[in-house]
Simulated scan of single mutants.
Amino acid sequence: MSKFSPLNWPVVRQLRAADAFARDVNTQTGKSRELEGRIDSADRMVKSVCPYCAVGCSQRVYVKDERVIQVEGDPDSPISRGRLCPKGSASEQLINSATRLTKIKYRAPYATEWTELDTDTAMEMITDRFLASRKAKWQEVDESGRPLRRTMGVAGLGGATLDNEENYLIKKLFTATGAIQVENQARI
């Protein structure tokens, strides 16, 4: 049969083979027979949780050569049953983005350039500023002498990319340090 013969068209092959729903090999082309799934070449699959909101949708993360190649919903999850929202489906782009920052950046007051900091230096700066602000605005008692033991110099804002457990721990941390202004992005 000639390559361009009408008998070689997929729809004709489908009808001749009584394949009414086009699910047989008669509708495949040579190119489509050679295609492979994105996850076929993965070295391993790692189960994870979507980083975007507190729902906790389960993900299957496929890794090849220590690089994430695909992220899909986990059908074994009782929460998401294999489904992901558009942001969760795009998690692979979050991980592999060329614009993703992997180092701590700091811009000093009035500076025009960002500088890189090591983790220890950044943590020391944050701790020093947190404690100084807490101390500067500390309120031990009110005008009537009633105990307050709080600070108005520190506030906390949790994000929707944190899970419930992380938000719980942040709330406990800020409350323990005397902060009373603790909010979450989901309530704003």
Rank of each mutant, 00 (worst) to 15 (best):
S5T: 10
A22W: 00
R23M: 08
R23G: 11
R23A: 02
R23N: 04
N26W: 00
Q28P: 05
T29H: 06
G30E: 08
E34P: 01
S41D: 09
R44Y: 08
K47S: 13
V55R: 02
G56F: 13
V61R: 00
D65Y: 01
R67W: 13
V68H: 03
V71T: 00
V71E: 02
D74R: 05
P75S: 15
P75H: 14
P78S: 04
S80M: 01
S80N: 11
L84A: 02
L84D: 00
G88N: 06
A90W: 04
S91W: 01
S97F: 11
P109A: 07
E113F: 05
E116P: 00
D120S: 12
A122K: 00
M125P: 02
R129A: 00
A132G: 07
S133P: 01
E140V: 13
E140Q: 14
S144C: 09
S144N: 15
L148I: 15
R150Q: 15
M152C: 12
V154E: 01
A155C: 09
G159P: 03
A160D: 02
A160Y: 02
A160R: 13
D163A: 06
N164R: 12
L169A: 09
T175H: 15
T175Q: 14
T177V: 13
I180H: 10
V182T: 11
N184C: 10
A186F: 11
R187F: 09
